[in-house]
């Protein structure tokens, strides 16, 4: 308890200091049940293989989204996918969190393309343009879902957890 509180306080003070002296660039982090936690900037993301998907947004119109497949990011972080996605690893889930605190959940199996046959994209462009403020820099796009409620905007963190 005490140690936790201490870490908490340090974190708080750290944030305040950072807040006063510099502007933190917007990043995406992948944490939790991973081999290598990642914190990625837009440039890190652009350096990875890019994928395009077409999907209908809330406006009912089809758009072309560009970015990195979520599975590729998970591979980079060392998340149990493919052959490793069995046994207790099937009780893992993923919490995606936006800058405003909005959270949505996926099961890990949903995100694995081998398993579910679907591509979930971590998008940074729409119709060739960077995602606008309030939506980007990063957004999830789940093309085959009829309601875009899990297309989480301004996504900041992705955490992989075990259901306990």
């Amino acid at each position: 308890m005490k140690i936790l509180r201490l870490i908490h306080t340090c974190f708080f003070i750290g944030c305040v200091l950072v807040g006063n002296f510099s502007v933190v660039a917007q990043t995406l982090s992948i944490t939790g049940e991973v081999k290598t936690p990642l914190t990625l900037s837009i440039n890190d993301l652009k350096a990875m293989p890019q994928t395009q998907v077409k999907a209908k947004d809330r406006d009912g119109k089809e758009h072309e989204y560009g970015g990195v497949r979520l599975v590729d990011l998970f591979q980079k972080a060392g998340v149990t996918l493919g052959g490793e996605l069995r046994g207790e690893n099937l009780t893992k889930y993923v919490i995606a969190r936006a800058a405003d605190g909005y959270e949505v959940l996926f099961s890990l199996a949903e995100i694995d393309e081998e398993f579910s046959g679907r591509t979930i994209l971590l998008a940074h462009t729409v119709d060739g343009q960077a995602l606008p403020q309030g939506i980007g820099p990063f957004r999830l796009v789940v093309p085959d879902e009829r309601r875009p409620a899990r297309w989480i905007r301004e996504i900041k963190t992705i955490e992989i957890r075990f259901a306990k």
């Binding site: 944030c15 305040v16 807040g19």
Partner: peptide, 12 residues
């Protein structure tokens, strides 16, 4: 913004 230090959190 005072907590996160991010400009995009101004006035949130």
């Amino acid at each position: 913004q005072e907590i996160t230090g991010e400009a995009s959190d101004n006035g949130r």
